[in-house]
Write a protein that binds this DNA or RNA. Structure first.
Lengths: 349, 349
DNA sequence: CCGTTTTCAGAAAACGATTTTAATATCATC
DNA sequence: GATGATATTAAAATCGTTTTCTGAAAACGG
């Protein structure tokens, strides 16, 4: 079932059928109707592949995420899908497992398939290969990790404000020894979060020791390792701030295993506010970020870039964050603070 | 950068370059080396779109899931990706939100893009539109929901055994009023799970009342509604069995809100064993299914189908399940049963 | 009624690869 | 050195569209 078949069916040339179907001018109303009718009757659908080859646009976009099983990213994908589906576009979703080689391979695969654009959530934005691909490839939007020294489309959150909110909350609760679990790489978002931690440490003259910082990998297991390491320090930190919720959940698990109570013996704060944090059994104090909206914003910006203003000036969208105070933080060296059903207390910068 | 450019670069015909690059015979070693060298130098990559048009194979496969943010499905996608990435294929992942119209639209989009095959996880396998697409489209593999009256490739789990395991566990704990939260549709897997529930109810002569069955929607919120409804019954069920973990988590949340303790006042069992169920704060007793392996098996079977044996006889892969007994089940009308750190007790059929 | 513009439809050339078919070297054989 | 078989390479057709270009018919103006 090709355009040739419907051309034959209404005894017209293929070019006429093409024009009629794609709403070009210069085709008589009557003819258009006839074509439309024939196409419907034969339930003709144009080959997206042939269209892509001819027009070099595929109405397809590629998304790279570190790990599709992480709710942070799957909700971002959901947000991307929200807006792209409306526009009749399809999504290639690639889960890179944080591996640079896999990311490169996927990026090539996507470009070979002529995606119209790319949305990238990745630690790896600085390798030679990747930079070469980005510089010669289709338009792209970065989420959460920008390229140093480049002005380009970016969607992220106010990492600094989020960390300050969390740190201030702990300081107000009387904590002076606050440990930090940082992310695995040296991406900009990791630096922003880590930077804010150090700034507050310095400003508030808190304990500043190398042993209070542990490099995690954003997984629950990594968080457990970090928790074990940090909780065995003497003197022990009274609060642990994690760069993401999974790490925080791991810390809590480690604390329980070691016989510490949360928050009585140690306060824990996460980052992201994945839905698990809201569960009544968990009630993790954490920094909220609008994951779905972030994805949506990235998709919208990418569409804008693909469309008219291919060479418009780059746009940065920074979403605000909120601290959702739940039950894993309490005054230093105190008893339990909140009951299980107290409403979230929401702090904004 | 097209194949023509590299042909020019080594002053050969495009056909020769094509043959050389794709390892065809009848091209001299020396020539092949020359071509390879030129292609590398120009870092030529063939256009997957042109290849797809010419060969009508795209080395791309489409995956339809009800909800990418649900860990059950994102882990299945992960398993699919495991095997497909090794084979150099790319994945279109589409999240249908359980909507039939969205699913149809996505299926068309995928077929327009000439995917080589489809992996379907969906309640909707029986509409006229969908059946028409399946019957005329590329090879496909069904996960967890089969089409009634069709013999086709299918990967699933032993739903019946899983439910019996769960029910028997409750019966052995002395429960006689066991409520059930079923899935939203009338798909085969829902029927299998519901059927097993009713069978055990009949076999063990347990309370069998319409009010003990509630139709959920596989979300936490739906589970909360169900929990509220069921826990307000008089007499109250002493145990609630949910068709998936999210529903079970919702039930627990509802129970806590209503002031019931789990498992002292009511036992709860889930289905799927998502990672949340393992968390020490949660410890949900649930039926485990190997999500990642299921995805992998589906991908493997699809590749087999796409390859040599397009017309081989259909294969059904049924994975066994296990009951993971944790802390949300206890004897009827009893006190707490397990401490927080007891190892999982694993029951297999 | 004739020349000019507008309106519409068709033919043909792309897009970038693969595959089929044709053409040319290369070589051994007589 | 002509002949034929066999390796190689080249040319052309093809996949299903869109787009450009060409041309015919109709409408228009004077």
């Amino acid at each position: 079932m090709t355009i040739g078949d419907v051309a034959k069916a209404c005894s017209l040339a293929v070019s006429t059928v093409s024009n009629a179907l794609s709403g070009k001018p210069y085709v008589r109303k009557e003819t258009r109707r006839k074509v439309q009718e024939a196409a419907d009757r034969l339930s003709y659908r144009p080959s997206a592949v042939a269209q892509a080859l001819r027009t070099s646009r595929s109405s397809t976009i590629g998304v790279l995420v570190p790990d599709i099983t992480n709710p942070v990213f799957s909700w971002m994908v959901r947000g991307i899908d929200d807006v792209l589906f409306r526009e009749g576009r399809s999504l290639f979703v690639c889960s890179t497992e944080g591996r640079e080689d896999k990311q490169i391979q996927y990026m090539h695969a996507l470009i070979d398939r002529q995606v119209d654009g790319l949305i990238l959530i990745s630690q790896h934005t600085h390798g030679d290969d990747i930079e070469a691909i980005l510089d010669n490839g289709p338009p792209f939007v970065l989420i959460h990790r920008r390229r140093r020294g480049h002005k380009e489309d970016y969607v992220g959150i106010d990492n600094d404000a989020g960390m300050r909110l969390a740190m201030n909350h702990l300081v107000e609760l009387g904590h002076r020894r606050i440990a930090f679990i940082r992310g695995p790489t040296t991406s900009t978002s990791v630096e922003e979060r880590f930077g804010a931690y150090r700034t507050v440490i310095a400003e508030a003259r808190l304990a500043a020791e190398a042993n209070l910082v542990f490099q995690g990998d954003y997984t629950i297991e990594g968080g457990m390792q970090a928790g074990k390491f940090l909780l065995e320090q003497v003197p022990r930190p009274t609060a642990i701030l994690a760069a993401n919720d999974f790490s925080a959940l791991g810390v809590i698990e480690a604390a329980m295993r070691l016989g510490f109570r949360v928050p009585e013996d140690v306060s824990v704060i996460g980052y992201d506010d994945i839905f698990i944090a809201r569960m009544p059994q968990v009630q993790l104090t954490t920094v909220y970020q609008p994951k779905r909206d972030i994805g949506g914003a990235a998709a919208t910006q990418l569409l804008r870039r693909i469309g008219a203003l291919r060479r418009g000036r780059p746009k940065e969208v920074i979403f605000p964050v909120e601290l959702h105070v739940r039950a894993t933080t309490a005054p230093a060296y105190s008893g339990s603070r909140v009951g299980p059903w107290e409403q979230d207390e929401v702090l904004v910068p």
